[in-house]
Nucleic acid binder design. Structure first.
Lengths: 210, 210
DNA sequence: GCGAGTACTGTCACCCGGTGACAGAAGCGT
DNA sequence: ACGCTTCTGTCACCGGGTGACAGTACTCGC
């Protein structure tokens, strides 16, 4: 995402924008759900927003980036929460708290969130694009673990923890978006607790309260 | 990968193949390391193999698939090892053993393996393509966990275990390909043991024996 | 109000990855 | 020799993504 440093105060200098990253995301989400990801061309999204194809690519580097707008901003939240985390508690416990705190959505945003996540986990190309966006997320955790354990960021354990935490969260996201039976944070909590317990056989026997 | 059911006995019916998936992989790996992934076009790979561009896409569905040839076959090994796993031992312990057993490479294959992994973890587009290939790997673990714990395959815990295991292995792969200081299996073993211990702070303090 | 600078926009041309259709090439069996 | 089968090359096309460049619509200083 090249520009768009948040919708600031009105008085800017040059020509005003013809659209916004957020508007493009909304339109894209609607078109994707209506007619499918592959069946929707960038031209269509751009046309629906009243801009040219070239302009679309000035807001997003790729067609598959258009649904990640909101998610990307969540990373900063997690990084801050981890930085403010108290010293005493175990690493995974701190991570769990930060993740849960960052994943509270307003009830009115939930339907859109579910739509987006359904697409992100269903369409192969979108799932592939996840890598790049989760990277920053992962690095936030990795840095935190490396700092807490006094290791280099390219050491095995910080790397493994960062990836495993992310993987667990993605499992929770997916489980949640597939069925509409419980709160997202409930799954995140259960998954991360199981991870911290080493996925011992005892904790694997039951589903979290449905 | 559409066709290529392993190089069978010679006497086949129609026109003989002009190349093989393996040869294309070797050529691609060489060109990618020499001049970069993006700088190498499919035309170049095909030309170096003496076939047309169209033929390349009959061996691989995408340019970014060309380095996954060997890896894809490894999945069957893991699935079999998990199926033959004794009943008594914990789930994660069984998974760890299967992964370690499936990841023994002949010393002469190691340089190529490292080249490939370097590219796969360095080039963004290749890292993104990993999703699809790891999927089968993940599902093997998920099925196993679901069977052992008596849960559905789309339940949270099997999903989380499968993803977390894979994530840990990827961390080990990456750590290994970045530096050439120890055996791959050593990192896999250390990572998976740490995962089974819930990444408790005590085990995170030291690097595995270097 | 008027020009200068600024920040965005559209148009155009181009490359490359990926696909469907179809004809041709090179082996097999009888 | 012939048909069948399997692989191949050529061609045409679509769509994602990019660089270059000109145009547009603002704000600011005067």
């Amino acid at each position: 995402m090249p520009a768009d440093p948040v919708d600031e105060a009105r008085p800017r200098r040059g020509r005003p924008r013809g659209t916004s990253a957020r508007q493009l995301e909304e339109i894209a989400l609607r078109l994707f759900t209506e007619q499918g990801f592959h069946e929707t061309t960038v031209d269509q999204i751009a046309a629906a927003a009243g801009v040219s194809r070239r302009t679309f690519f000035r807001y997003y580097d790729a067609k598959s980036d258009v649904l990640w707008n909101e998610f990307d901003s969540e990373v900063d939240t997690i990084r801050e929460l981890l930085a403010d985390s108290p010293e005493g508690i175990p690493v995974l416990e701190a991570v769990r708290r930060a993740v849960l705190a960052a994943n509270h959505y307003r009830a009115e945003d939930v339907p859109e969130l579910r739509m987006r996540m359904n697409l992100l986990s269903t369409v192969a190309e979108l799932a592939a694009s996840a890598t790049r966006h989760y990277d920053a997320w992962e690095r936030a955790v990795i840095s935190f673990v490396a700092r807490r354990t006094g290791q280099a960021e390219d050491s095995l354990y910080p790397l493994a923890v960062g990836r495993a935490v992310l993987a667990t969260c993605r499992a929770a996201y997916e489980r949640w978006s597939a069925r509409a039976d419980a709160d997202l944070t409930l799954y995140l909590d259960a998954g991360l607790r199981a991870l911290a317990a080493g996925f011992a056989d005892e904790v694997l026997v039951g589903e979290p309260g449905v």
